[in-house]
Nucleic acid binder design. Structure first.
Lengths: 163, 163
DNA sequence: ATCAACAAGTTGATGCATCAACTTATAAGA
DNA sequence: TCTTATAAGTTGATGCATCAACTTGTTGAT
């Protein structure tokens, strides 16, 4: 597409096509969450992480690690979700300090149903249309990509609810 | 990862791994642009689209179509880039109206060198590590994904500088 | 027990993406 | 030509992601 000899036309097409497909899939999944449950991908990730957490109260830091998010991202996101009533910051220890955060009843209900819907969408849009060979190729490529990047850089391990 | 029988563990792993790999690649490419040329992916897309435009002046709408972006996104982006001096809105017709936008000299230089760097990075991070079978699988999957989504929905065709 | 260093958490600022509302051009009909 | 409908473009608001700066707790050495 772009005139240069660094990349052959076919190579650029592959890149372009792949990027577009990937973007469409991500959009599709995200729109599913929005349409069916009225939540964003970021909200979904937090809800799931809290649902899967050990206790009813989690420290912000622990949540951040589960998500692979830096603390300020978590904090901002929690602020927004708190104002939506999905989550609450509660006093956590003996003293009256506002440490620890947990799901509200609304948040818990939403999380539980959204998970099912999300997984269904992942199946419908990603897994079902995948031939076995494609699945194998994608798995192999993904793993080597992750190795290449993570071995020589920062570790970005995350649940992040994938998508 | 998530306990449910909607997805088998292996299936979820595939999804999770694939999403992570895709995110890492996108990040890598974007960080390359930022590190080597000090521009974002959005800025790069606009620079390239303007460079490839027919004349020195383009209408915002035409730019939007080339990018596959809606008009307000284009407008906001142009405002930011104008303030960085990469782009300028100029009088376009007979009258003194501010229609049409074009690259500044800085913008043009940046565009020209960034393209080469970007394509090199695409090659290094995406194309080179790809085996022929993986390339074929990814191409096939991408095309069917695009068909599935676009055939029954909005057309999201875009140059968008892929990544 | 005090104080210094570090960890946890919040806040503000900036850029990007999207939606809705608004203004201004342009073109078509009367 | 005047008017009005539609297209083009801007603006404002909101959410998300990231960086840097700041506050507050916790811990540990003395």
């Amino acid at each position: 597409m772009i005139e240069t000899d660094v990349l052959k036309r076919e190579e650029w097409d592959l890149w372009d096509t792949w990027m577009r497909a990937q973007r469409l899939l991500a959009q599709e999944i995200e729109r599913g969450l929005q349409r069916e449950f009225g939540i964003s991908k970021a909200e979904f990730s937090v809800l799931v992480a809290l649902l899967r957490a050990s206790g009813p109260q989690v420290r912000v830091m622990a949540l951040g690690e589960a998500l692979g998010w830096e603390k300020s991202r978590v904090s901002h996101q929690l602020t927004r979700m708190e104002s939506r009533g999905l989550v609450e910051r509660t006093e956590g220890g003996t003293s009256g300090r506002r440490t620890g955060i947990g799901l509200t009843t609304d948040g818990r209900h939403l999380a539980e149903s959204a998970i099912l819907g999300h997984l269904g969408n992942v199946r419908r849009f990603f897994l079902d249309p995948l031939s076995p060979e494609q699945a194998a190729a994608i798995r192999a490529w993904s793993e080597s990509m992750i190795d290449r990047v993570e071995l020589r850089g920062v570790d970005t391990t995350a649940l992040d609810a994938g998508a």
